[in-house]
Amino acid sequence: MSLNKKQIQYLKGVAHSLKPIVLLGSNGLTEAVIAEIDYALNHHELIKVKIPTDDREVKGLIVDAICRETEATKVQLIGKTLVIYRQSEEKKIHIPKL
Rank of each mutant, 00 (worst) to 15 (best):
Q76C: 06
D64Q: 07
K6E: 02
A40V: 09
D38T: 14
K80G: 11
R86S: 01
I78W: 01
Y10S: 00
K48A: 06
Q76K: 01
L77I: 04
R68E: 03
K5D: 07
Q9P: 09
K91D: 00
Y85M: 04
L61C: 04
Y85V: 03
Q9R: 07
H94C: 01
E45F: 01
I62C: 06
S26R: 14
K80I: 08
G28E: 14
V58T: 14
T81H: 13
S17F: 15
V22F: 08
Q87M: 07
L82Q: 07
A72P: 01
G28S: 10
K5F: 00
K59W: 05
N4T: 10
Y85G: 07
E57G: 12
I66Y: 10
Y39N: 08
K5P: 00
E89Q: 10
L77R: 05
S26H: 13
P96C: 06
V63E: 12
H16V: 00
E89F: 08
K48M: 08
I78Q: 12
E45M: 07
D38N: 13
I21Q: 12
K80S: 15
Q76S: 11
E89N: 08
Q76A: 10
I34R: 07
T81W: 03
E90S: 08
E57S: 12
G25I: 14
A40N: 11
E31H: 11
L18D: 07
K97D: 02
V83Y: 03
L41T: 01
I34G: 09
H43I: 11
I37L: 09
K48W: 06
H16S: 05
K48H: 06
A35K: 11
V49H: 13
S2F: 03
V58F: 12
A32P: 04
I84S: 01
Y39F: 11
I93G: 02
L29F: 00
H43W: 00
K48R: 12
E45W: 05
I21E: 14
A40T: 10
L18W: 14
S17C: 06
A72G: 02
T53E: 00
Q9L: 04
L82R: 04
V83C: 04
G13P: 05
L77H: 04
G60C: 02
A65F: 10
L46F: 09
L23Q: 14
E71W: 00
